[in-house]
């Protein structure tokens, strides 16, 4: 028994914090690597629908985004409340799509151009009319690979 009490008395009660910076740095690197800086600010409110048959878009540089939804409150006075299309970081119409696609295509190396996806991030409440117009514009522009952005659905229908 005496042995034990002796040991307890000797032990240093403080925990070494020397490795704390290392732990923090590890977390820091993790977040630095996973962070994607969004270049375009969202100007329309989008809440994508739910689905189960999802595929992941691997390479972000090969994806261009087309947002459809109701303009955010601060743009309401200028653009109204009806669903609008946002291409990159400005409002547009389906007529601006060919130019928008071409601008993105120019940034991608030639041999990867066939792998470009257009991600349609549309709000669940918009009607199909505006989406159909975009689909037609994409087909005319030869951009046939598209992805309807959706969240994973947890519960059954």
């Amino acid at each position: 028994m005496g042995k034990f009490s002796k040991k307890g008395g000797k032990a240093d009660p403080e925990v070494s914090t020397a490795s704390l910076p290392d732990i923090i740095f590890m977390l820091l690197f993790f977040f630095m690597v996973t962070t994607v800086m969004r270049t375009s600010e969202l100007m329309v409110s989008v809440s994508v629908p739910e689905a189960t048959e999802l595929t992941k878009l691997e390479k972000k540089s090969l994806v261009n985004y087309i947002y459809i939804g109701r303009p955010m409150e601060r743009y309401e006075s200028e653009f109204g409340t009806a669903p609008r299309i946002q291409l990159g970081n400005k409002f547009g119409t389906d007529k601006d799509i060919p130019l928008f696609l071409e601008a993105h295509r120019a940034k991608v190396s030639e041999r990867e151009r066939g792998l470009i996806y257009s991600s349609i991030r549309a709000d669940g409440e918009v009607t199909m009319g505006i989406v159909s117009d975009i689909k037609t514009a994409l087909r005319k522009a030869g951009q046939l690979k598209i992805n309807y952005s959706a969240r994973a659905r947890a519960k059954d229908l």
Binding site: M32, T55, L57, K60, R139, G142, L144, K145, I146
Partner: peptide
Amino acid sequence: AFLLLIFFLVTTTIDVDKGISIKLPPW
């Protein structure tokens, strides 16, 4: 390190791009 960490924590948006991929018919 904490300061930097908090900065990246706040700016990170872990939104994976998932969706239904389809191929449109040519025009």
